[in-house]
Design a binder for these strands. Structure first.
Length: 718
DNA sequence: ATGGTCAAGACGACA
DNA sequence: TCTTGACCAT
């Protein structure tokens, strides 16, 4: 009993209520920073310690791998015991786990392979080609990919899509069908299919479902607002009559609508489980009252909300700092200065997060932090296991355990180049198609028929021999040793060594790191089991070696999406510009725009004590210059909560160029005080270009006006 | 069959 | 600006 008291005593009233609620369904509507994860982990611990419930009846679902890891750690320390037996993970990794156990019922080969979105796109391109739909403007593969995933998210296979007579849709359905058939034939499962399959598994095998319903009687779901239709149904099936659900979520933090997530699932819960208890957590423990007020002001511009009133007893803190630079160099430089300041005042680099809307924005910050030797860590972007060199070596390993995998075969048959060209390859493809066999089988059969030119025969023989021969090495060595062997003997190392550039070196380093990652990967009983589990983990994005590294002393760079669930004393949100954030694609509908706003809310509420919002007047995009307006989200923050960084800030930052112009015989310089008949007094920030009319396009900062204006001429110096 | 050059297209976030 | 795929010369 002591234990349970200590579990509760650090919690506030509503938190205690949620943690110690009698058994039954429970929905915790928790605002940002209100201790959502705390409540969930304490609930788990409370059930074990106070109710003597075995953790083996728990299933904990999180939304990202990062969150799963974090959660596991926290539960472990609360329970003071290892939680290896606890089923915890993302929807995708749990689905994978079920499919792996019941691969036969799911009608999958034992060694089915997970397609990441790049693989998927590649496959769709291929399918389009087979249909002679080569015109990528009419048939953008991305659009097809979205079409397929969108339907799968709703649980729809091609045959479920109603035919409304639209020929374009018909065509897409056809492509979808062919893509799906190809996946079926080759044991390929894309991300959405993981969920759909495991859902169908339970639908078709009620006894299997009953088994798991009896086993998992306590289901916990984090970030419930981000569940999609399939995930919701999946949960509903699993919970059944006996199970209890403990869900936490916040409709204001729903940011995965583009992936099919449905906030409505939160309300749906109260309909499907009428006995559910709803508990609200509205006290924020994270941010200063200023930050919280600003975030509340922004989010209150959204119409579609359940509504909640987040409050804090926290200190007022300092105003939100708003900075504008003339270009992204200045923006990055500004952040650098603030980071150094923080450090000089005794802060740690690990306190700092730099958040952006798109991964492409990270580069310049990476550059400048690197130049100034500031330790930083980038999350996301091109993830480790998505790099070409890593995928290549993994493809060898995959082909080794699953000869039948055609995409993998195609990937490495001539990588590194070994004299097998398009001719030979299409010969193999054709034969495989005719005989409805895999490329690997086709190759061996054609080799037996001596169907190739001498040169190809030689190369193919070597290749096939190699894949077969490594079996012996596999038997007699550890997994890392084996990988290293394959790496060398496949010629990949030699191939990358030829690239003397920095990039070649980086690739070799990555490959070394992969060996490390394999070595550190949780050993399981059988070597083959372990290898195949490892390959799955690489695709599911868990166990990223570069992210696993200590993050203690690093400035964290990540997208706003990746920042969900994290908190930092000092947060920068950069690129606060119309078209970038909110993104241009979101202008088309208020739903999308509201999702952007929620994303902004998520970003702002990551900050504990200081928040910087920055934007620029000129941004390079696709290599050409754009002149965006400041983000509407900035203007949605009440003036009294913000502080616009003064002129001296702008002037002390590095000027991009010291261009001067001559306008009707008047000399204008950057940084000069100028007068505009409409906007009044200001400072000239950037000279953008001259127009034929002798008018000059400039940016200037005018006092008293909150935002910068793009002015055409009519400026005069003061 | 290979490796190099060139033009077109990408940049929306994640599993 | 950077990456990718098509095409061309070797």
């Amino acid at each position: 009993m002591d234990a349970s008291i200590s579990l509760l005593h650090s919690l506030n009233k509503s938190q205690q209520e949620a943690v110690s609620i009698p058994q039954g369904h429970c929905l915790v509507l928790a605002g940002a920073g209100s201790g959502k994860t705390r409540v969930l982990t304490h609930r788990v611990a409370w059930l074990v310690k106070n109710q003597n419930i075995s953790p083996s009846t728990f299933l904990v679902v999180t939304f990202t791998n990062k969150a799963a890891g974090e959660m596991q750690k926290r539960i472990e320390s609360l329970l003071n015991q290892s939680t290896k037996f606890l089923w915890i993970g993302t929807f995708h990794s749990l689905a994978y786990r079920f499919l792996r156990i019941h691969y036969q019922e799911a009608k999958l080969p034992k060694e089915f392979q997970i397609l990441d979105s790049e693989d998927q796109l590649r496959l769709i391109r291929q399918t389009l080609k087979n249909h002679n739909l080569v015109d990528e403007t009419k048939w953008p593969p991305r659009k097809i990919q979205w079409f397929i995933n969108h339907h799968k998210d709703k649980g729809e296979y091609p045959q479920h899509i109603p035919d409304d007579g639209n020929p374009d849709i018909q065509k897409m359905v056809q492509i979808y069908l062919e893509y799906q058939n190809y996946c079926e034939r080759n044991g390929l499962v894309d991300f959405t299919e993981l969920l759909l399959r495991s859902y169908k598994l339970w639908q078709y095998y009620p006894e299997l479902l009953r088994h798991y319903q009896t086993r998992f009687t306590h289901i916990f779901v984090d970030e419930f607002q981000d569940t999609n239709a399939i995930q919701y149904e999946w949960l509903r099936l699993l919970i059944g009559r006996q199970g209890t659900l403990f869900a936490v979520g916040d409709d204001d933090q729903a940011i995965y609508g583009w992936r099919g997530a449905r906030v409505e699932n939160i309300q749906q819960l109260t309909l499907d489980f009428p006995s559910i208890h709803t508990i609200r957590l509205e006290q924020n423990y994270r941010s200063t009252s200023t930050i919280l007020a600003a975030a509340n002001a922004v989010i209150s511009c959204n119409k579609a909300r359940l509504g909640k009133n987040l409050w804090t007893e926290g200190k007022k803190g300092i105003p939100i700092q708003i900075y504008s630079g003339s270009n992204e160099q200045e923006e990055a430089h500004f952040c650098l200065i603030q980071i150094l300041n923080w450090r000089n005042q005794g802060g740690s680099y690990a306190d700092i997060a730099l958040l952006y809307r798109t991964n492409a924005q990270s580069r310049i910050f990476e550059d400048i932090l690197f130049q100034h030797k500031i330790p930083y860590r980038i999350h996301g972007g091109l993830r480790f296991f998505e790099r070409a060199e890593i995928k290549n070596i993994l493809a060898y390993l995959r082909l080794f355990i699953q000869r039948e995998s055609d995409p993998v075969f195609e990937r490495i048959i001539n990588m590194p180049p070994r004299g097998i060209g398009a001719q030979t390859l299409s010969q193999i493809r054709e034969y495989a198609q005719d005989q409805t066999i895999s490329l690997w089988q086709a190759t061996t059969q054609l080799l037996a028929q001596k169907a190739f030119t001498p040169r190809s025969t030689q190369a193919l023989n070597n290749f096939c021999q190699f894949i077969q021969d490594i079996e012996i090495v596999f038997q007699s060595s550890s997994l890392p040793q084996f990988t290293e062997y394959v790496l060398k003997k496949s010629g990949l190392v030699t191939h990358y060594e030829k690239d003397k550039s920095e990039r070649g070196q980086a690739r070799l380093d990555n490959l070394k790191e992969l060996i490390q990652a394999i070595a550190q990967f949780q050993p399981e009983d059988q070597n083959l089991e372990r290898l195949s589990a490892f390959l799955a983990y690489t695709t599911l994005g868990e166990a990223d070696p570069q992210q696993a590294q200590q993050t203690n002393t690093y400035v964290q760079l990540m997208t706003l999406h990746a920042a969900k669930g994290l908190e930092f004393p000092l947060v920068f949100i950069v690129g606060m510009e119309e078209g970038l954030f909110p993104s241009a694609q979101s202008f088309s509908s208020s739903n999308k725009l509201e999702e952007e706003r929620r994303l902004c809310y998520v970003g702002m509420t990551r900050a504990k004590s200081q928040l910087y919002l920055t934007y620029v007047n000129c941004r390079r995009l696709y290599g050409s210059e754009n002149y965006p307006e400041p983000s509407r989200f900035i203007t949605e923050i009440p003036n009294q909560l913000t502080q616009e960084l003064g002129m001296h800030q702008i002037q002390t930052s590095q000027p991009a160029s010291s261009k001067e112009i001559l306008l009707k015989n008047i000399q204008l310089r950057k940084g000069q005080r100028v007068y505009h008949p409409k906007f009044g007094e200001g400072i000239l920030l950037a000279i953008i270009g001259e127009r034929e009319t002798a008018e000059v396009e400039v940016k200037f900062y005018s006092f008293g006006i909150k935002r910068l204006a793009l002015i055409y001429a009519k400026l005069r110096p003061i």
